[in-house]
Nucleic acid binder design. Structure first.
Length: 255
DNA sequence: ATGGCCATGACACATGGA
C-alpha cells in the first residue's frame, strides 16, 4: 500500500491540483498540511467523490492538517499534548488500515532567534514526548508530514546559506536526530542513503528551475512498519504544474 | 543587504511562509 504526504498550501485554491494528483498517484493514505481553511471550508465532498474518506483540523487563514484514506478512518487525537494554550492546527492522528497515522505540520520557526523559534523548539519537544509514548505501544505507527527540518547537509541545495535558518539550526537538527533515536526510521533517507532528495522548492528566484530545493517532508516509521518498507519517492513533476504548491508530494510503499 | 512569489482575509495591503 502507498502512503503520501503533501503540503498543499491552501486546500481550496489548490483543489484541482490535489484531485489531479490523487487520480494519477492513487495513494491509499494521504497526509495534508497547510490547509489554510477554517473547519467548515474543507472540501470533504469533492475528496469523497475522488474516493477518499477524510478527517481534518482546520484553522482560519493558516496551518491546518488532514488525513485522507481509501479505508475507514477513525480520528484518535487532534493537537500534540502538553500545552493547553496552543491553538494552532498542526497535528491530527488517526487509525486507518489498522495503522496509527500521525499527520504533522511542525512550526516554521523563523526568524531565528525569537519567539517563533522558541515555539518551534517547544512544539518539537512535545512531539518527541508523544512519539515516545507511541513507540512504547509497539504498534504499527507512522509520523508523517512537513517537519520543517532539513535533517542533514544532504537535504539542502546550499547548506552554508541556511546555518541560521530555523529549518536548519543545529538545535532543530539535533531534536530531529534525537527523535529518530527513539527507534523511528526516516523512510526516504533509508531508501536513498547518499543522494539529495528535495520535497520543497521556493516560489522565489526560479528555485524549481534551478533545483534549489530542500527536504522538509518526512516519513518516520515505527519498527513494525519499517520492516515492511518497499520503496518511496517524490512526485517532483507536480511542483511544475500550473498553480502548484511550493512542496511536491512524497510517498512510500509498504507491504 | 534586499527583494523576488504566493495564499488568505474581507479589500487594501498586512501577515506568514521557508
Amino acid at each position: 500500500m502507498k502512503i503520501a504526504t503533501f503540503n498543499i498550501n491552501g486546500i481550496n485554491g489548490r483543489l484541482p491540483v490535489l484531485l489531479k494528483w490523487l487520480k494519477e498517484a492513487k495513494p491509499d493514505i494521504v497526509c495534508l498540511q497547510e490547509l489554510k481553511a477554517p473547519e467548515d471550508r474543507f472540501p470533504a465532498a469533492a475528496i469523497k467523490k475522488a474516493g477518499y474518506n477524510s478527517i481534518w483540523h482546520g484553522q482560519k487563514a493558516w496551518n491546518g492538517v488532514a488525513i485522507l484514506s481509501k479505508d475507514e478512518i477513525k480520528e484518535v487525537r487532534r493537537g500534540i499534548p502538553g500545552d493547553s494554550e496552543d491553538v494552532q492546527s498542526r497535528y491530527i492522528e488517526a487509525i486507518t488500515f489498522q495503522k496509527v497515522i500521525g499527520c504533522i505540520y511542525l512550526p516554521n520557526g523563523n526568524p531565528y532567534p525569537g519567539p517563533k523559534f522558541e515555539y518551534k523548539r517547544k512544539w518539537f519537544k512535545r512531539l518527541a514526548a508523544h512519539a515516545k509514548k507511541l513507540m512504547a505501544m509497539e504498534l504499527p505507527v507512522m509520523l508523517v508530514g512537513d517537519y520543517n527540518v532539513m535533517p542533514t547537509e544532504l537535504d539542502v541545495y546550499k547548506p552554508e546559506k541556511y546555518l541560521d535558518n530555523a529549518l536548519f539550526r543545529k538545535e532543530i537538527r539535533t531534536a530531529y536526530k534525537n527523535l529518530l533515536k527513539q527507534g523511528w526510521t526516516d523512510a526516504l533517507r533509508t531508501l536513498y542513503p547518499d543522494e539529495p532528495i528535495y520535497t520543497f522548492w521556493d516560489y522565489l528566484r526560479n528555485a524549481y528551475g534551478r533545483d534549489a530545493g530542500l527536504r522538509l517532508d518526512h516519513f518516520l516509521l515505527s519498527p513494525l512498519i519499517a520492516e515492511t518498507l518497499k520503496k518511496g519517492g517524490v512526485d517532483k513533476h507536480v511542483r511544475g504544474w500550473e498553480k502548484a504548491s511550493d512542496h511536491a508530494p512524497a510517498w512510500i510503499e509498504i507491504k
